[in-house]
Amino acid sequence: MVAAYGALLLLTLVFKGPILKGPWLFLLRSFFPNWKFFHAVGRVPHLYVRGFVGVKAAGKAAGKAPSEGWTDWQLVYPRRARGQGDLFHNAETNLLLAQQNLVDHFWADLVDLPDGADARQLVSFAMVDRLALNSTLAFWPEATQRQFELRMVLSDPKDTLGNNPADSETMLTTPVLPCQR
C-alpha cells in the first residue's frame, strides 16, 4: 500500500493536469494544496515606488543631482528582525509575508490579463496601489505625487535584492498618481 501511494505521488510529479481558474476557486484554493515550496529559482515580482518631492528635496535626499524632483525608485520588500516570542506570536512578520504574497498575486493577475485590458479593474491592482501609496508616504512624507512599478527581478547571488537593473524586467509602470489617501 505504501508503495502504491509512493507511485501515485511520483505520477503527480510527472503528469500535470489543466489549471482550473475561477473567482471561487481562487478564494478556496486552500482545498487543493500543491505542497511545492520554494522550488524554483528565477525572476520574482518586486514592488518599487518613487515620489515627487520637489527639485530641492529630491537632490538633498539622493545626495546627488535630482531628476526633475523625483526620488530614486525604492524597493518595498518585507524585512524584519527576529523578536522574542515570535514562535508563539508573529503577527507583524506574517502580515509582511502576506504583503509580498499580494504583490505575487498582482503579478499573476497581470499575466492572466487579456491583451488590451485595463489593469486598474483588478482587485489586486487596487490593493497594491494602496500599499504603494502608503509606502511612498512612509518613505517621503512630503511627496505630492508618486509612481509605482512592478519589476520581475532575477534572484542573484550578490544579495543586491533587485537593485541590479540588468537583472530585472519592468512589467508595469503606473502613470503619475496623486499622493492622496
Binding site: R79, E92, A98, L102, R130, N134, R181
Partner: peptide
C-alpha cells in the same frame, strides 16, 4: 503597526490595503 518596509524603519501606518 510597524510595516517593516525594507530600508525604512519605525514606520507606522494603517493597513488600508487590506
Amino acid at each position: 503597526m510597524a510595516t517593516g518596509l525594507h530600508m525604512a524603519t519605525n514606520l507606522h501606518q494603517p493597513l488600508d490595503w487590506w
